[in-house]
Amino acid sequence: MSAPSQLQLERLAYKRSRAQKSTVVALASTVVFAVAAWLTITNAPGWPRVQASFFDWETAKKSLPALLDGLWLNVRVLVVCGVLILVIGLAIAAVRTLRGPVWFPLRALAIAYVDLFRGLPLIICLYLIGFGLPGLRLSGIPNDPVVLGSIALVLVYSAYVAEVFRAGIESVHPSQLASARSLGLTHSQTMRIVVLPQAVRRVLPPLLNDFVAFQKDCGLISVLGAVDAVRAAQIESATSYNFTPYVVAGLLFVLLAVPSSRLADWVSRRAARRQNAGGPGA
């Protein structure tokens, strides 16, 4: 590579100075906006009351251990349910790809399942499973609210994830399936070796988005009485007559979501880049 010409050097210098100017402008406007927002809120007539009941430092410190204990439960539910949802969602999506009349009942069942649990509001599903299932008084049915809540979460989210996987499976070019079958691979080998690896790679970005949504929905098991971070905040705020624990719990959930959100961004950027680079198989 030859040394850049005078013209190119001038161009680079100009671009650099313009970039510096934009940075300064962006910083300045952010600061101005933050200060204006801060002044507006703190000068509002009700601010002292709001500050005392939502942003009380002492209450925050006092409630933090209980909230962290609760969050640890959320994290455990998140991990266990996350794995179950992936496995069940993938299985349902795979069932929906089966062709031929023999598989009709199974396929119909999978479709009905997805329709039902994708349409059902999560909160209703939680109540039905959480209060209805133990109400049957069958032996072997758990009545731990954590387990019941997890069942409801898995039921609903598996339906979403199954649809995401199905979209991924259907995005694999038909010639790929035909190629695999023509090589003598069976349907299940074709799925396992050729289709699913491609499908999973393609749906990683939307899947991570669902994961971020799932992280906060884990907090809904509190409606069944499971002592997670949300429920802990409720208890703490009832004993302290202060809403600060809710704010702290909310912040904890946000902190939990930040890494997965950044990961989701990074993965979708990478996927987009690779798709542009790869082009069609022609």
Partner: peptide, 18 residues
């Protein structure tokens, strides 16, 4: 699946597993 093993086929595009 057995019968196909006696034959090979190549399409216009999207043959290889990426």
């Amino acid at each position: 699946d057995h019968a196909r093993r006696g034959m090979g086929i190549v399409f216009q595009a999207f043959n290889l597993f990426p």
